[in-house]
Nucleic acid binder design. Sequence first.
RNA 1: GCGGGCGUGGCGGAACAGGUAGACGCAGCGGACUUAAAAUCCGCUUCCGGUGUCCCGGAGUGCCGGUUCGAUCCCGGCCGCCCGCACCA
Length: 859
Amino acid sequence: MKETEKAPLRYDFAEAEPRWQKAWEERGCFAAPDIPPPGARKYYVLEMFPYPSGRIHMGHVRNYTLGDVVARYKRARGHLVLHPMGWDAFGLPAENAARERGVHPAAWTYGNIATMRAELKRMGLSIDWSREFATCDPEYYGKQQKLLLDFLRAGLIERKESWLNWDPVDGTVLANEQVIDGRGWRSGAPVEKRKLSQWFLKITAFAPELLSALEGLTRWPERVRLMQANWIGRSEGARLTFPLAEPVDGITGVEVFTTRPDTLFGMSFLAVAAEHPLAAAAAARDPKAAEFVAECRRMGTSEAVIEAAEKRGHDTGFRVVHPFTGREYPVWIANFVLMEYGTGAIFGCPAHDQRDLEFARKYGLPVTPVVLPPGADPASFAIGDEAFTGEGTAFNSDFLDGLDVAAAKRAAIARLEEIGAGRGVVNWRLRDWGISRQRYWGCPIPVIHCEACGVVPVPESDLPVLLPEDVDFSVPGNPLDHHPTWKHVPCPACGRPARRETDTCDTFVDSSWYFARFCSPKAEVPVLRAAADAWLPVDQYIGGIEHAILHLLYSRFFARAMTATGHISLSEPFAGLFTQGMVQHESYKGADGRWLYPTEVEKRPDGTAVHRETGEPVTIGRVEAMSKSKRNTVDPDAIIGRYGADTARWFILSDNPPERDMEWTEAGVAGAFRFTQRVYRMVAGAALPPPGTPVPEGASRDLRRITHRTIAAVTEALETFAFNVAVARLHELANAIEDARDADPAARREAMEAFARLISPMMPHLAEELWTLLRPGTERLLAEEAWPEADAALMAADTVKLAVQVSGKLRATIEVPVGADEAAIFAAAEAEENVIRALGGRPIRKRIHVPGRIVNLVA
RNA sequence: GCGGGCGUGGCGGAACAGGUAGACGCAGCGGACUUAAAAUCCGCUUCCGGUGUCCCGGAGUGCCGGUUCGAUCCCGGCCGCCCGCACCA
């Protein structure tokens, strides 16, 4: 290009983005006080804080972009916005790094945080960084220990012996929910069952409330509420005891939970879990029983999936007595009975439970129907391959005969209670939350074990219980446990030598109350009450669907437990929840079958791909969630370096609705980048009158209409998380401004100023840059400006286009003045050549007019 | 198995409250500019058909049917996909 020609106007994002980030910081644009001033309209936006794994990934970029759009938008709407960031910094990877590379977990973690903080800052997020903390900061976990002591005092923590999932690779206990398909959720190793003494948070104490309060969470996705309801799993039924015909090892009876007490007369066996005491008793006597129990334990749940259909059991030879009939039934050990659910024992009624039926058929146990389907003949009704689980009438059931299922349940429970054999109960699937981890890099549980005094809480004046820094990772097991001195302390009660608890907390504990700590992150107490009362609940929480159950349920529990212990007054921590989809990418395989990074692959115009260096053909695989193993990842930092943060943000928002999975494509980013350059040229190249120049009355109505309609549409879209729609509307506005080169300059200024304001939540740096072009020398940053208001009068049109249908089929469109009377509209419609042709001389039987939309002439 | 969701061009998707289906973008095609390319700009782009300059007709939102003047939207029945829970007694 020759020098004399107009130089291309180029937006230098690499220069501009850091400059604006600095300007926001210097002006303190995003700082929020612990205690909002009176009359402030608060809005608390929170994204799930990251685990400091080393580098940020595209999932983070998406998550924090979504939150930042909300935060910036709400701020422009006049809210006082709290938008903090922190680090979910305890956890196993730090210890793995210590073992593998000899770097201390703290050094590894804080090093990663420094890297990731810098990466996040490059995104231009409107975060109040003065509130930042990491859960591994002693200032944070010390406050958490205070909470745990209060919970202990309030009876919300207890120590229990129980069967637990043991991860042999991680050498730690897992919560049931951390076991996925019988494998540890982190290690992937098959989980074993062990009996250990552990600390539990009594989440079950809040089960009824955690369930019922879901109804009020109207700004949560329905499916998350449903998943939580299923997880809590309320079911009504009866607990009853079957006396053993002969006591075994002092056990005189077996307690059973059932939701179908109405089918008690259809019993044909009793079955217990492999971990049940009666199974142990059987195993002690009978090697074959022992073998079966061992097999069940080995099997865990993972093998169960493989052998899903296979119901297996072992007859113990023990017999129980039916409380109603006095008849005796065999006691089996069965692989499908769970020790963790109900009482670990069931009575089997094969006629009306599919699993029991399969079991009975396999072992030749009797099948007696006791519920008669409507219209069936009691004399001939029999069970085939399918158990009957529907509504019906009790029969073969003595005093229950003739009752429907619900009435029979009530009657059976009443009789059980009358004879003292059982009672009606509500059973919950939810179990208490085991928080003990035999790990170093976690929050120490602040108690001391004394031989004389038992469990003694650490005095609050001794908090925080700090992790020792000199730890040895060369031996397996818990470094805290084999630290030479750390655990040896005098008992706070009696002063004699005692032992510190060496278990640390599940990291889900850390993330269960960080939302509250953010309100007053420097406070000497866990939460400054006034700050929490003012800021909580979180108005909009944003994160991945993978936390739909655990993290959110635990946080809901913490809100209640902290309320019960006086720290806050809150039931629900998150008033609004948005769950984003994953970021996906095509995967690539080289000629040798190895996965290739997108940066190693060159796409050809014909849709094929080759290796960038070797030129060898590349197989294009499925589009799937970015993962290191498939190497289908894109490094956010590289993208930001190449295109800028605004481009990355804009593409992420434009691709599709944020709740769905999105596909990251090189072409998509490039398109977003072109748009940033285009709008910069548009504004920079425009000849505009001075700011504040009024638009002459009646001038450039079309452009002004689009401007104001876009303001309304983008506002609506941002309110409803329809960010992709907001992007589309802004494309349209940009197109309209470019097309309207000859429009009134003041109207063009109005349009461009609206444009800059409307893109500011999504592309904040570019928006600031446009703003200085539009308002040279302005004192105020766009980040400090208010959201534009749509003028309804300017949105309105003089004429309206109507679709004209003949018998429901589109035949023409007519343009009529707004408010034209119906007769004139019908006349215009019927005068259309195409309409006349379509009518073909037939008389019009019916005329329909929907103002502003359609005319339908029915022939 | 139970529960929930989804299905619209080559692709991502849009469509107020039952009212012109396919906005906007990506990709593609054609053209302008250029020695050439990149960049940029202009145009076309659901499918089929008709002597497609302006145009007209038909089909069309997974499939079949229904309600309605009119259905992507409501109802019934299928098919497919996705997610959650899964021996839950």
